[in-house]
Design a binder for these strands. Structure first.
Ligand code: MN
Ligand code: MN
Ligand code: MN
Ligand code: MN
Lengths: 222, 222
DNA sequence: ATAATAATTTAGGCTAGCCTAAAAAATGGG
DNA sequence: CCCATTTTTTAGGCTAGCCTAAATTATTAT
């Protein structure tokens, strides 16, 4: 059963939305937004994916991936993240440059290729944005890190990942001197605009806007 | 100006046929054969490519690449061959396995990616099948090697490349113990079926059918 | 419960890229 | 030069994947 690049992108989008929303599936409008297609086009495709038994779809209800559909989606996520590691580790791209290229590479079809790439990279567990890489069985254990702005207390945290992959956002973080694994000490919380005064590692203090603190994932430092 | 994967494959096919036939362009039927599309479909596409100024096309005449079209074709060839090197050198694929995957990878669009890949691989000059890799300026100097069966004499040759990339052919060569750079000593020529008795490096003698000797490129050993 | 609004589906239409079959043009042997 | 064959083009049709606009269904606020 052959699957097109377009269909792969729909599966990936459904998977991603379903993750974010905690397993309630994906609505037509959410998919339309995510894929920048019109809602009518989404409905078309959902019918076709349903024919192919890749999703469960009933009119006017959120769509869910079938077991087969989910397996395929995870395989694509695996490829995407492995390629991102390759681009960063081997080709020395910046973490803000890898996503768009990986969007293309994730569609290359070859089981062997993915597995050899995985070996070549030394079975990495996380991609350059801190996202976990599914293993070859399709096993994926989600990050337990949470957005910084959910912790309402001063304290010391570790920067584990981001919830946004746009180049501009990642470049902003780099400009702040922030990289995965860094220690973030929250020194002050401004109630007015929810901005934070923080210290990254041993550097001078700086400020995180709410937009920053809501898009970076952290764990409490033990 | 955006160009589709399908259009890229047409450009590459025209380029390849034009090379083989020594600059006389490509006919509709040749393209139809090469791409395993019907002739009518080829005519359709030639009109579209002509609209985009990527080829020069006049009804009932062989098509030629425009300067822009050739530049794009060479860029694709460059990517194809660099990826083949990557697959072989870094991921340890066999030379019979790399072509099909490279057919997909050659369409990944990113100038940066190609150049970094080139650096990562150490600016290789030839791909795993002995084909020369165009440089970043689009410069390509063709092999001066010739098919073995064109040399009608006993003698000692060096195996420089192949004229066919099918897995079965390459596996056959591997089974004969033949790899790029090997020395081939022609010990006997059988007039009857044009088969050759040859010695590869220091190994025991074996036979090349005409089908083999016409598809391997050699130079006279100096 | 009803009315307004929002979400979704349907209907009709478009393009890229393919196909088949028929028509037209080129080619080659006598 | 002419007829048969080959090559190429044209005409008409199909599917995947998109769009817009209208119709339908679901949701929300009164
Ligand atoms: Mn990404
Ligand atoms: Mn990532
Ligand atoms: Mn190849
Ligand atoms: Mn090759």
């Amino acid at each position: 059963m052959e699957i097109s690049l377009t269909e792969e992108n729909y599966l990936k989008a459904i998977f991603s939305i379903n993750m974010q929303t905690g397993g309630v599936g994906a609505s037509t409008n959410q998919l339309s937004e995510h894929l920048t297609n019109k809602a009518g086009s989404v409905t078309d495709m959902l019918k076709r994916l349903s024919e192919k038994k890749l999703v469960q779809y009933k009119k006017y209800q959120n769509v869910h991936l079938s077991a087969k559909g989910e397996k395929m989606a995870i395989e694509i996520v695996r490829k995407h993240r492995l390629w991102e590691v390759f681009l960063m580790e081997k080709l020395k791209f910046g973490w803000d440059e890898v996503h768009d290229i990986a969007e293309q590479l994730e569609h290359i079809k070859s089981k062997e290729l993915v597995n050899r790439l995985d070996v070549f990279l030394g079975h990495p567990k996380f991609d350059p944005h801190g996202d976990p890489i599914p293993d070859s069985k399709g096993q994926l254990n989600p990050l337990k890190a949470k957005p910084l702005h959910q912790f309402k207390n001063k304290g010391v945290y570790i920067f584990m990942g981001v919830t946004q992959h746009s180049a501009s956002f990642l470049q902003h973080l780099s400009a702040l001197g922030l990289a995965i694994g860094d220690t973030i000490k929250v020194e002050e919380i401004n109630e007015f605009d929810n901005s934070l005064k923080v210290k990254i590692n041993k550097n001078a203090s700086c400020f995180f806007s709410e937009k920053v603190s809501s898009n970076i994932l952290v764990e409490l430092k033990k």
